[in-house]
Design a protein around this nucleic acid. Structure first.
Lengths: 321, 321
DNA sequence: AAACTGTTTTTTCACGATAAAAGACATTAT
DNA sequence: ATAATGTCTTTTATCGTGAAAAAACAGTTT
């Protein structure tokens, strides 16, 4: 049987949450508070509570907690409707970044770090309890994370027993890209067939501009490409009007996200090439010529697959028991 | 805002688990015990504990619990290695069927019953707490179920808030079948290209025989088709050697499973037609002629889609807030 | 009357605790 | 020496609980 996944853990992992039996972190509040601070720079007085709620994407309850604290720290004067800004926020008004993360994000990062840090052979067991202890969170959160994560195809559950790591292998990358290519070719064709007055064309124009801008400043901003990449591909996938295709992009995005972090070799060159391919792809879409779209899409996908594959070390065969 | 999904619940739902604060049901033991009883008919003495474990798919701990009870009820004499059968199991030796179900199964059934029982409009909210109370289980189990269930594309989560029902609509069926057709055409082509000595060909022969047998007894056994259907399609999908394609069949299987239960109209006729299509599909695969395979596959998938679509009532447009 | 604020109730999220089940270790029988 | 049994430990599955956050309700202000 495979060795345990976490057994060989390095440093005694700083626990993510303060050790004591705390029930739920208030990261929603802290994150919204920080974002609200940035709003303070721009105005002399804040809008109504419901309006702030929609602006920040939180409930009014959280808005009021934010306002209460801002009043306490002398940032604003708050009396019913009047929320007057008293002073500019200072750096130490902000909550530390790491306190604004979701538990799910913390667990995912922790998990992926181990996965990519090597030594994570296919076939290894994943131990919920051990993972939970090492990250410093409850088992329930880890379980829920693993269930959500399982759709990425990297882990698998044994009934009433442990999870098994399937490994970030060459086979995985090939299976992933096979589906990606199937879906994206279809989406791109659907995109090109969209009526001229569809809103996507202006979105595409905007993305094209951003690509050109990035291309011109590639020397300094090359690491901003991955975000642009995701936006373009998501726009195209959405044209399929198929939830399974759209949702599958989550798998791709996740893999590429960590892949970008992992493999920095020739990042600048790779991204430069990809921007060029994107621009060709975009102009093919704008031409609405299905043949051109197909060709440009294929070309880009092929090089994307190549990039992914070269970053995966040739996998050793799984251990025999 | 949509109305709550469970608000309009009918009968005060008999609680699935005994009311009191019990932690975990021993359904694994009960189910394995029942299956072990059936084994008793065939032999005069039981094999070793580890062997029984693999046979029943449970740990030795559970095996020993089973043996202890069998000794207690006078079914066997148990002394170390000697496990002699003393009498045949009687009907009342078995645990009741409903006590052998997984919590996940109980929740899924309960949830799907409501979903299909009508009155479940798209846009409705799903309330974890209410669902948990009505089924008579903890919130954690419901949460985990919903997370797992979300990959079927029928529900969606609002961050830090409720789930939203997307509804079993025509659009859903079309999106599902679009992917299914893409995946199955590809898998079928891969299947036909498999080498002659692959084990799948004997599996296919066996399935063909079972289809013929079922066809000849269709008048009485028509409801056994759905199981055969799933086995054939899963065999074909597996030829893709792509985990995402193989896993996607879970979505299809789930939908068709409940669809079969829901829509009994012309069941016999539908299944008779489908068996015919399957036999044609199988012989096309055996011919290994890609053109024929493609045609037979398309034909069957088209009628499968038709069947699914006709069972879905024309959806009203979602309520505006 | 519409939109806002103040207050109360519900629901979600996350934890620790506990029984069921799995797994590991020690011992004994073939 | 191998493979079983007997015993002990660890892990998983599930619940109840309580704080964070959302949502509902009630009362004000414009």
């Amino acid at each position: 049987m495979g060795t345990s996944y976490c057994a060989s853990s390095q440093q005694p992992q700083a626990t993510a949450c303060n050790g004591s039996g705390m029930s739920k972190s208030n990261n929603v509040y802290k994150d919204a508070y920080n974002r609200c601070l940035r709003l303070l720079d721009e105005t002399r007085s804040l809008p109504s509570e419901p309006e702030l709620g929609t602006l920040l994407g939180v409930s009014r309850t959280t808005v009021r907690t934010i306002l209460a604290r801002m009043e306490e720290t002398g940032l604003i004067a708050w009396n019913k409707r009047a929320k007057t800004v008293l002073r500019e926020p200072r750096p130490d008004d902000f909550f530390p970044e790491e306190e604004t993360d979701t538990l799910a994000e913390i667990i995912e990062r922790s998990f992926m770090r181990r996965l990519l840090a090597g030594g994570a052979e296919a076939g290894m067991q994943i131990n919920e309890l051990e993972l939970a202890r090492e990250i410093g969170v409850g088992t329930t959160s880890v379980r829920e994370f693993l269930i959500r994560f399982s759709r990425f195809g990297l882990i698998e559950k044994r009934r009433n027993s442990h999870w098994v790591l399937k490994g970030f292998t060459r086979a995985f990358a090939l299976e992933l890209t096979e589906i990606r290519e199937m879906f994206e070719l279809r989406s791109a064709a659907a995109f090109a067939a969209l009526p001229q007055d569809s809103a996507v064309w202006t979105d595409l124009d905007r993305l094209e501009d951003e690509h050109r801008l990035l291309a011109s400043e590639i020397a300094t901003r090359f690491n901003e490409f991955s975000e642009l990449d995701e936006r373009l591909h998501r726009l195209i996938h959405r044209a399929s009007h198929n939830r399974f295709i759209v949702d599958f992009y989550d798998v791709i995005a996740m893999i590429f996200h960590y892949h970008y972090q992992w493999n920095k070799a020739q990042e600048r060159e790779r991204n430069e090439v990809a921007i060029g391919e994107h621009l060709a792809y975009i102009s093919a879409l704008k031409s609405r010529d299905l043949g051109k779209v197909d060709a440009a899409c294929r070309k880009h996908l092929k090089s994307a697959r190549q990039t992914l594959l070269t970053s995966i070390p040739e996998s050793r065969p799984p251990l025999k028991p």
